[in-house]
Design a protein around this nucleic acid. Sequence first.
DNA 1: CCCAAAACATGACAAATGTCATGCTCTTCG
DNA 2: CGAAGAGCATGACATTTGTCATGTTTTGGG
Lengths: 198, 198
Amino acid sequence: MKILLAEDQAMVRGALASLLRLSSQHELVEAADGDAALALLKQQSFDMLLTDIEMPGRSGLELAAWLQHQQSPTKVVIITTFGRSGYIRRALDCGVSGFLLKDAPVQDLLAALEKVQAGKRVIDSELALLALGEQDPLNDKERRALRLAGEGKSTAEISQLLFIAEGTVRNYLSEAMSKLNAANRIDAARIAQQKGWL
Amino acid sequence: MKILLAEDQAMVRGALASLLRLSSQHELVEAADGDAALALLKQQSFDMLLTDIEMPGRSGLELAAWLQHQQSPTKVVIITTFGRSGYIRRALDCGVSGFLLKDAPVQDLLAALEKVQAGKRVIDSELALLALGEQDPLNDKERRALRLAGEGKSTAEISQLLFIAEGTVRNYLSEAMSKLNAANRIDAARIAQQKGWL
DNA sequence: CCCAAAACATGACAAATGTCATGCTCTTCG
DNA sequence: CGAAGAGCATGACATTTGTCATGTTTTGGG
């Protein structure tokens, strides 16, 4: 099996590559960021893409979406950091075959690769529970306002960008804050981003 | 040589361990968090501690400080994520022998271990430049106020905790914001934390 | 010792933020 | 149809926040 490993932190990537080369006889190619991975995906065909979500250039989710759009048979397995459980829904929408935490032991990774290869889907149970437990409570307007607020934009700027009154902006942000149990708009933005809801 | 590897993300830890076991003949022990690492350090003697900074329980810097305080001969090598360059000064104060980025290739890690074993100090050059370029502009009072603000505490709460007037708290935070080019207190807290200045 | 500079501290003020009561439109269900 | 309710939008209001001018204490030279 031919696997593409996309992960930006060189040390982590190198270590994982070494591990995978050691414990399996698959062919392994490495990519240092999302764009490099995409280029490789266009160029060659892989049986599996093993990718981080947060990378410079394209995110792992974008890669998965692209593959899905291409109707590529390449299976996608996402590895991500704990706490970004909000990504899981979007990942499933992109048709990924696996979703694992970097907190899981390496055996889980190896086992997951086996299962995915056999056509199964593997979702880390801890993560699945979290994802079911909390889902994105924000509506579209709130999300857009919150995203801008998170970028440091003021109420006035946001109101202009969204073509609504300042009061309305404050209203949306207030809603979002209350839904996210945040102390203020920026706190709310941070929480939402951390969950992958922005 | 007997090495203790402290890193909380199991997958990363497992992969690094596998790599190190493969590429060297050193004895390697793993710890899943700062507290476990400390317990092992108390119990056995190691030639080297290879540790992440941000971990549950004790941080890698705390481990380094403890070893320094014990006048232990154990060498410390820190591996950390890019962007937390602010940690480097504190790390040097704790007498660490090496400071590497997870962005560096694994060869760098192996090379660094060699050098440190030979008694040298290894600081990632990229990181060293960054650290020299920007140093923590916050003074102690500002840092303490900012830390509390980052936890979502209000001005009133902070003023009580620090035994100063609310106006003074706002003053410190305002100073910090201006020094960090932040739009508001929470933004400032985020920036400082990201640089490792909190 | 004495002065100047730095660090520390304060409250007045203006601006920004968050809350709330209210009104409007559109769907949906009896 | 008509009532109920969800979603969207607004501005008045009180609170919180950030800025600034100012005063006090500490520190380090001369």
